[in-house]
């Protein structure tokens, strides 16, 4: 079965600076795929090559479906109204304006506003609506929540989940590890222009998260342990607290966050 996107041995240099050094990954239909990497790892270059906005030196890119693109930094003329921008882009994509889709993104409240009158969150929503014009199969979102407040971020997350429910394939590049961990089915980590990892968060944990983290909150304070044998440590810890008659308020066990795994994975990479 075909994949939504296949990237194989992608290479791209800017002069003598080799940004992509044989990047490879596959994205399945209907998944949210996260692209992670430190600054300068080649995320935006890779995405722009896949989106067809940038020429690449060698390798193979296969995109199977209509694409919609929300760029990391983009803008519209200051005096264009949201409704005009949506209509203009629909006309250029030779499609009808999807009023319902626009309403789902909360466009009705900014419909008649000019671009310079929009807040950062409203601009992000408009750019997402523009990317979704023409009902694309694959949606590229490059740092979609950058600069948004907590409320705006949550709203955008629910919109991304809604897109997945509608069967869209979403490629999400972000620096926000919590966002990627919550939203993405699979991720790829780019390091020095190559794929350092490609798989699910669970697979990454298996690969990198060798140790367990225990966060324990008691009536007398909080403590944190990093252990290899979880059972042994937990039992002895709880027994000790019971013996000292210390009340346990909260206890959390994990094998590291995506952020910790990411840092472990990209340690030493250029920033």
């Amino acid at each position: 079965m075909k994949n939504a996107i296949e990237v194989e041995n992608l290479r791209k240099s800017y002069g003598s600076n080799e940004v992509l050094r044989g990047l490879s990954f596959k994205i399945e239909f209907g998944e949210i795929f996260g692209v992670l990497g430190v600054n300068g790892a080649g995320k935006t270059t890779a995405l722009e090559c896949i989106e067809g906005l940038r020429k690449y030196d060698s390798g193979r890119i296969e995109v199977n479906g209509k694409t919609g693109i929300q760029l990391q930094s983009s803008a519209l003329p200051a005096h264009i109204k949201a409704c005009e921008a949506l209509c203009l882009f629909a006309k250029w994509k030779k499609t009808k304006q999807d009023i319902l889709a626009a309403e789902r993104l909360g466009m009705d409240e900014i419909w008649k506003k000019q671009y310079f009158q929009l807040s950062t969150g409203q601009k992000r929503r408009l750019h997402l609506a523009l990317a979704l014009t023409g009902d694309p199969d694959i949606v590229f979102l490059d740092e979609p929540t950058a600069g948004l407040d907590v409320e705006g971020r949550a709203a955008l997350h629910s919109q991304i989940r809604e897109l997945k429910k509608r069967g869209k394939t979403i490629v999400l590049a972000s620096h926000d590890m919590a966002e990627v961990e919550t939203l993405c089915d699979r991720i790829t980590i780019l390091s020095q222009g190559k794929t350092a990892f490609c798989g699910s968060s669970a697979e990454l944990t298996e690969k990198v998260g060798k140790k367990y983290n225990i966060h324990i909150k008691t009536a007398i304070g909080s403590e944190y342990f990093e252990v290899d044998n979880i059972e042994e440590k937990l039992i002895s810890l709880l027994q000790d607290l019971k013996r000292r008659n210390v009340e346990v308020l909260d206890i959390k066990v994990d094998r590291g966050t995506l952020e910790q795994h990411f840092i472990a994975m990209t340690k030493g990479a250029e920033r």
């Binding site: 906005l53 693109i69 760029l71 930094s73 803008a75 519209l76 003329p77 994509k93 523009l130």
Partner: peptide, 13 residues
Amino acid sequence: GGDVKKLYKANNV
């Protein structure tokens, strides 16, 4: 001169 052009390019304008 900047980001408007990128958005137009990305949307086939």
